[in-house]
Design a binder for these strands. Structure first.
Lengths: 332, 332
DNA sequence: CAGTCTCGTGCAAACGCATGCAGTGAGGGA
DNA sequence: TCCCTCACTGCATGCGTTTGCACGAGACTG
């Protein structure tokens, strides 16, 4: 292992017969350099394999070009999709993504965000994670813009990108009702999440509008095992619902598995099932899940747009909730 | 937006009535500081909300504590799982993960790796991505250890963590044969991938050992749509296989969908199906896929172990391929 | 031809921290 | 009592950049 010394701008400068400044300017878009020296420098740089040290640049400019992303879980396929989109969108803008997994405890988020801030990130995206208000203050104090993704905070003026979850819940209700179902249940996600609250609120609204109430309710916490337990509690009884709105697709898969495989119920004949998100596997024939689509690309686009504006210095307000659509497949 | 000046070690030093060095040492484990000044410094730091700037530290020490991860796709659920595990394992060791998505062209990987190196990463993990040999050289030149994850390079002495894919292929063959199947097909992944080559080699070996040959072969490139097309070509004919080994679970789902939903074939009665990976959804009743399990945790553990050793300076050789196991479910 | 502009360049000062070196004081052994 | 040791501390330097400033040389203008 030959310890190859790191090649710096000074090496390039010497070889090209110019100053460090010249080298720097060649690699700084929009700086004033003559084409003659630029080409000399580029040649020398290529010969030596020089590339500017992003970290050193970050120190001076205060811009690290890195965005912290904290995400709670990746087993719900919605988030890998988002991560991929997000990473691509940010790379396109010259940013890169430092990923952190946060377990569900608020302490953990606290800790994780602190660590991210140590990296002098230019911005922060919190997906499926809530932010304590003093932590939000810390970020503001560090001058690091934060955008919440698929979650919002009631009280704070925090930037948040969400779908129109309330409308989505309402669409779900209306669809089940249009099918003639009357004994309608709901399997909720984690009740601390704004998505859950909004989806349920909209759903209830839709039921009420038709003069209906909730026939049954269980909580699945957005986790697969709990969702399955919830489904068993709700359906392993003669007096069961004839339709159910599950707060996201990921849980809906589990619920459907319980219904069909454990309880031998037919979907949608015995019970109609509708989810939320429209993750890729919802379209797979094995599930063919009717669901409310969140437009992941649109969410990502507006999220990075908002974040970059904020980074650029222009104060931004939370964009309007993004439209959702009912996608009918075969489960409802 | 009050532009809060960044709080530096000097601020803390002043407030605590000590020098910057003292502050630095308090935050450097194993440095020599008296308990008295340490507590003074800690108090001041807390009061001011001071945390050391990781980037500045990285410049001095040359250790950024960040690991670059490049991954080609996240729609195959194996990789989100790996990413989550990897991130957790590395965080536990004080490292953090900078994620890059690489499209499939080699050019893109080239470009992406260059960008990662600009961040002075301490190490590099390439998952499901191959490395051109001159790129490998560049990494070596930068002194950045690289480990390939779930992919290996024949020629190079590159560190690679893989399962025993050959044995896995062999197990798949033996299992299908033990079921009495004789007209056995294979739907391959991307043929440029070592995983594909090894799995298929083992599979063929298993068939040959039983005096069988391959009944049919199609290529799915590890992509869902292509796998489905491959399945159609292979099975939409009277003279079809009675069993098929699909090179990974992700494609197997697509194949199974085609078999059951489009061609109305029964699995496993009409055709037995076996996959590879054992992603979480393989266990879901809707698929209940028989498969060859790659032990993701073990792979991740050995990968970070190898990487950290290499970073630590001890030269490491590629660990032995990790054991795989047949997990029988209902598709074969 | 003098004066003014513009462009390109180099110098040197940051950025926030770690660390070798030298120096201080206290404690202990002879 | 003197000297040595040892634990601790501060000073100053350096990590690889960017960038404001000043300056020289042309290029224009009148």
């Amino acid at each position: 292992m030959t310890t190859t010394r790191k090649v710096t701008s000074l090496d390039v400068a010497k070889r090209a017969g110019v100053s460090r400044s010249a080298v720097s300017r060649v690699f700084t878009p929009g700086a004033s350099v003559s084409e003659r020296t630029a080409s000399k420098v580029r040649e020398a740089a290529n010969a030596l394999g020089y590339r500017p040290n992003v970290l050193a640049r970050a120190m001076l400019t205060g811009k690290s070009k890195i965005i912290g992303l904290v995400v709670a879980y990746l087993d719900n396929h919605f988030y890998p999709t988002v991560l991929e989109l997000l990473s691509e969108a940010l790379e396109r803008e010259g940013y890169h993504v430092l990923v952190f997994m946060a377990a569900h405890s608020a302490d953990d988020v606290e800790d994780v965000v602190s660590q991210i801030l140590d990296y002098q990130v230019d911005g922060l995206i919190l997906a499926s994670v809530s932010l304590s208000s003093d932590l939000a203050d810390r970020c503001r104090a560090s001058g690091v813009p934060v955008v919440l993704f698929n979650r919002k905070l009631e009280a704070e003026g925090e930037l948040a990108v969400v779908s129109d979850n309330r409308m989505g819940g309402r669409l779900a209700a209306e669809h089940l009702i249009s099918l003639g179902r009357t004994r309608i249940g709901h399997i909720a996600g984690w009740e601390g999440a704004s998505t859950q609250r909004d989806r349920e609120a909209g759903f209830m609204e839709g039921l009420r509008a038709a003069g209906l109430g909730l026939f049954a309710r269980e909580v699945g916490d957005y986790r697969l095992p709990r969702a399955k337990e919830a489904a068993r509690r709700m359906f392993d009884t003669p007096d069961r619902p004839d339709a159910v709105f599950v707060a996201n697709d990921y849980m809906a898969f589990g619920v459907m598995d319980v219904l069909r495989s454990e309880l031998s119920l037919r979907v949608p004949d015995d019970v109609a099932l509708i989810g939320f998100d429209d993750v890729p596997s919802a379209a797979w024939p094995a599930y063919s899940l009717t669901t409310i689509r969140q437009h992941a690309e649109a969410m990502v686009t507006t999220a990075v747009e908002a974040l970059l504006s904020e980074i650029g210095g222009t104060d931004v307000t939370s964009p309007a909730p993004l439209p959702v659509t009912l996608v009918r497949r075969t489960t409802a």
